[in-house]
Design a protein around this nucleic acid. Structure first.
Lengths: 356, 356
DNA sequence: GTTGGCAGACCCGAGGGTCGAGTGCCAGCG
DNA sequence: CGCTGGCACTCGACCCTCGGGTCTGCCAAC
C-alpha cells in the first residue's frame, strides 16, 4: 500500500486503485447520468494506465457487485452497493462560506420554532435541489409555558398549550353539556396552577388527577379537557414533517411516472416519511445515508435519503430525499451544515436560561 | 326546435345537434384520452344519423374552433373553447348519497377550523382524483377571543391571538431589552382589556394607541407587540392554502414533465394559487370553471380549475385543479357539495350565537 | 501486471414499407 | 335540401433493416 491517502477502511475486496475507479465512475455518472466507459475513467481518474487496464479492473468491480452494465456493450453504472462504498469512503467536507452564510441568515430571522423548521426545509431544498424534510423535535422534554381555555360555543372550547420554544398545541374541547363562563374560568385557573411548568407528555395525567379532585360542577369540563389532551398531544409535533422542494422530484428523469406519483403520496402522507427519516438518522451526530434497496419502504427503493439527527435537549431529524443518483457529497455536507445551524438557532430560541 | 331539452343558452353558432356531438366528443375524450372519430360519436351520442353526417357536423365544429385534429387523419379532441361550451351547457347535478354522507361524516368530526380545512381538501381530492385546494376564510370579520403573551427568553415573547372560530395567530415578539416578568404581566392585562372582542384587522391599530398611553417602562414591550401585529396578522390565514392529492398530477400522462415540475412549485409556493382560486371562484355562490388558456398564469395554461366561494360571515374559497381534460361534471358537483358542507360545518364551529 | 489491437455486442437513429383509423368529398337518394 | 354510402387519401403507429458509434472482452506481446 502506498503511504499517501490509502483510506483506512477500504472494503476487503477493493484495493486503492479499484476504489479510485469506483469513485470516478460514481462521480461521473452522478454528474452526467450516462453509463461511463473505461476511456472516460482514464481521463477523469488521473490514473497512469491504459483503458484496457481499467477495463480489467471494471470487470472485477462488476463481478463483486459494485457496478453494473445496462446492456452488454454499454458503460457501467454504480449499483446500490457501489454507492454505498462510495459514500463510506467519502469525507464530508465543510460548506463554502457563501452557503454557510445563507443558511445562518435565513434561519436566524425565523419568527418562531415552526417558522424555523419551514425555513430549514426551504434552505436545504434550495441548496441541494433535492426534496428536503425536517421533522420537528419531540416534546418529551418540553415544558408547558401556557395553558388556556377559550370558549367558542356554549358547549365547546379551545384548549391551547404552548411549550417553551413557542410551539402551540391546539385541541377542540367538546363538553357534553352547556357550561357557564364562570365555571370555565375556574377550570382555567385550576389548570394554570397544576399544569404550568410540567413536561408536555405529563399534562394528560396531571389533568386526569384534577378530574377527581374537581367539584362536581367543574367535572364535565375537566373531563373533556382530559380527553382532549390524550396521549398524542406530546407526539403531535414530533410527527410534524416540513417538506420543501418536492418539485425537484418531477424534474428528475430517472424516476418513473408511477414511482413519482407514489413518492408524492408518501410526501403528502408524511408519517411514514417521519419514521424513515428518524430511522435513517440513527443516533449518530453525523449525517447518514440510506441508499436505494436499503430502504424498507418499497416506494423508496429507487431513492436515497441523507439525514441527521439534531439535538437541543429534545431531538428531531432532518434530511434530503432524492434519486439514488444524487450528489452525496453535497447532500451530506449540506445536511450537516443545516443541522448544526438549526441546533444553534433552536438553542437561541429556547433561551439560554434552561437549567435542568 | 324540438320541445324537449333544447338548452336555452346554446351559443349562436351551435344548434342542438352540434351541441350534442360536442358533448359526446368531450365526454368520450375525457373518459378515454384518445381523439374521438365520427363512428364513435354515432355510437355514443345516440343520434340516428350516419357517420358521414357526423363528419360534416364535426368539420363545422372544427371550423368554429370547438374541436381540433392532432393531425390530418386523426379523430377530434376538444379545444379550450369546446370545453368551455361543454361546461356552460352542463347542469350541475347533486352527489349520490354515499359521497354526500362521506363528506358530512369527515367534515363533521373535525377538531377545529384548521383541521376542517385539511379534511375538506382531503375529501375533495379523494372524490375527484384531482388536486384539491382550500383557502381559509379571511379574518376580516373575525373577533379576537384571546390575547396572550408568553415569555420565552428574557427579551422575547410569543404573542398569541385566537379568533372566534378557534384559529390561532402566533407571532414572535422581539423586545430590544430585557424585561421583567411583572412588566409582561401588566402588558398582558392591558392587552386583554383593550383587544378582546375587537375585529382581528383592528388589533394592530388598537395596540398602536396603547403604546402612547402606556407608562414608559411598558412602552418597549408594547411597541414590540405593535410591530408583531403588523397588517398581515389578519391576512395570514386568508392566504393559508391547504393542498390535497397532488400525487394525482403525476399520474396524468397529459402533463409534460417540465410542466409538472412547475405545477408542483406553484403548489408549494401557494400564494399565487390562493389568488387564482379566489379569482376563479368570483363572487357567485355556484362553482365556476377556468379552463386552459383562460388562465393568466402561464404555468396553468394546460390545466383547468373549478372553484367556488364559501361564505359564513367571512368567506374563503375552495376548488380543484387538474388537466383541462378532467371530468367537469364530477368536479363541479363535488366542489359544490364540499363547499356547502363546509359552510354548514363552519357555521356550527363558529357557534350559532353570533349576532352582528 | 500492463498494453495495444481487434472482433463482437448492442444501442440509436434514419429510412422505408405496411396497416388501419379516420377524414373529406361526391354522387345519388328520399 | 339534408342525409347517405362509397371511395380515395392522409398520416401516425408499428415493424424491420441497416449503418455508425461506442464500449466491452479477450488475447498475444511486452
Amino acid at each position: 500500500m502506498s503511504d499517501r491517502e490509502d483510506d483506512p477502511r477500504l472494503p476487503d475486496d477493493l484495493d486503492e486503485r479499484k476504489a479510485r475507479i469506483l469513485r470516478s465512475i460514481v462521480a461521473d455518472f452522478v454528474a452526467n447520468g450516462q453509463p461511463v466507459g473505461s476511456s472516460r475513467v482514464v481521463d477523469s481518474a488521473g490514473l497512469n494506465v491504459s483503458s484496457a487496464t481499467v477495463r480489467n479492473e471494471m470487470a472485477a468491480l462488476e463481478e463483486r457487485g459494485y457496478i453494473d452494465q445496462p446492456h452488454t456493450s454499454a458503460g457501467r453504472i454504480p449499483t446500490d452497493k457501489g454507492y454505498r462504498a462510495f459514500v463510506d469512503l467519502l469525507e464530508v467536507g465543510g460548506l463554502d462560506a457563501r452557503r454557510a452564510e445563507l443558511i445562518d441568515e435565513l434561519l436566524g430571522s425565523a419568527r418562531d420554532a415552526e417558522d424555523l423548521m419551514l425555513r430549514a426545509s426551504g434552505v436545504l431544498a434550495q441548496l441541494t435541489h433535492l426534496v428536503a424534510l425536517v421533522v420537528a423535535p419531540t416534546m418529551d422534554e418540553a415544558r408547558c409555558k401556557l395553558v388556556e381555555l377559550v370558549t367558542l360555543t356554549p358547549s365547546s372550547a379551545l384548549l391551547l398549550l404552548v411549550d417553551d420554544t413557542g410551539r402551540v398545541v391546539r385541541r377542540m374541547v367538546d363538553i357534553d353539556q352547556q357550561v357557564s363562563e364562570s365555571d370555565v374560568s375556574r377550570v382555567r385557573a385550576v389548570l394554570a396552577e397544576h399544569v404550568l411548568g410540567r413536561r408536555m407528555p405529563a399534562v394528560h395525567d396531571a389533568v386526569g388527577q384534577l378530574v377527581e379532585q374537581s367539584p362536581a360542577e367543574l367535572r364535565p369540563i375537566m373531563r373533556a379537557v382530559h380527553t382532549a389532551t390524550a396521549a398524542d398531544v406530546a407526539v403531535e409535533l414530533v410527527r410534524r414533517v416540513y417538506v420543501g422542494g418536492q418539485a425537484a422530484l418531477a424534474g428528475d428523469e430517472g424516476i418513473e411516472r408511477t414511482a413519482l406519483s407514489r413518492l408524492l403520496e408518501l410526501l403528502e402522507e408524511r408519517t411514514t416519511l417521519a419514521r424513515v427519516l428518524d430511522d435513517t438518522a440513527g443516533t449518530s451526530a453525523a449525517p447518514l445515508a440510506r441508499i436505494g434497496a436499503e430502504h424498507d419502504v418499497e416506494d423508496l427503493r429507487h431513492t436515497s435519503m441523507v439525514s441527521q439527527r439534531y439535538e437541543v435537549v429534545r431531538s428531531g431529524s432532518l434530511g434530503v430525499l432524492g434519486p439514488t443518483r444524487m450528489d452525496y457529497g453535497s447532500a451530506l455536507s449540506t445536511v450537516r451544515a443545516v443541522s448544526e445551524a438549526l441546533e444553534r438557532t433552536l438553542a437561541g430560541l429556547a433561551g439560554a436560561e434552561r437549567t435542568d
